[in-house]
Computed example of a mutant assay.
Amino acid sequence: MKNLNRDFLRVEHYFAYKHLKECLHKEVQKGSKPFSWPVAIHRAIKCSDRRFYFWFRIWRYFFQSNKFKLGKVAKHKLRKLNRSYSTDINPRASIGPGFKIVHFPGVVMRGNIVIGANAIIRQGVTIGARNGTDQGYSRIGDNVEIGCNTCIIGDITIGNNVTIGSMAFVNKNVPDNSVVYSANEMVVRNK
């Protein structure tokens, strides 16, 4: 039984590490060359927004995997990183590779969210729960662009290839290939 658990942890750590490298390749290193730790570190030192992605992914990896018993240290480091970039992203949030925050201040994300690949988020976006007892997940698909000061609340699903305009209030499911904007009420139309 212990060997089975140990093997399961090895596989889990392998996929977590593979995900970490994929995220760092798309968000920090960028380009078509294969992933390289020295290049990723150099680019993280050189550019402040890439530095955020680098440390966010590194500390989130250690928080999730608790590798080398660094889970508590990683949580503390993530809080410090959030404060320095004026964001509040819960380390339990599952965010796919290619994640991009255009302007950092005011971005708030709860832990019960799953965001797909290549998400673009602008300043002032809140992705959260309706209240403290809301247990569901907010699921956001691949290639979703979220405009500034948008509020996404509740246990909802947003499809792939969706564009959400500025100052939208989203509390309903959104189908794939849609544009969402708020005039006086939420409006959803096909692209």
Rank of each mutant, 00 (worst) to 15 (best):
G147E: 00
Y181E: 01
P34L: 11
R92S: 13
W37I: 12
K67G: 06
G165H: 03
K26P: 12
I95V: 14
I158T: 04
R110Q: 14
I158V: 10
V187H: 03
N171F: 06
A93N: 07
S48P: 09
A16V: 12
P38I: 01
D142M: 07
P105F: 04
N66L: 00
E22S: 10
G141A: 00
S138M: 15
N66P: 03
G106Q: 00
K30W: 06
I152Y: 04
S182I: 05
D176V: 02
H25C: 01
P91H: 02
D155A: 08
N82A: 08
V187K: 05
N190Y: 06
Y53N: 05
R60I: 04
Y181D: 10
A183F: 03
I158L: 07
K72G: 14
N5E: 14
S182Y: 08
N171T: 14
P34G: 13
K80A: 09
V187M: 00
K172T: 15
N177C: 01
P175K: 10
T126A: 02
S178F: 04
F15G: 03
K75W: 01
S86H: 08
G96E: 07
F99A: 03
I58G: 10
E185W: 05
Q135A: 09
N160W: 05
V39C: 04
K46A: 01
E12P: 00
R50H: 07
M186A: 00
N112G: 10
N66M: 01
V11P: 07
W59N: 00
F169D: 02
P175S: 06
P91Y: 11
Y53L: 01
N177H: 09
N161G: 07
E145T: 13
N3T: 07
Y61S: 12
H103K: 03
R10K: 15
S178N: 05
K30T: 02
A74G: 02
N5L: 15
V39M: 14
V179W: 09
G31A: 11
G124A: 11
V174P: 13
C151Q: 12
G132D: 07
L20E: 01
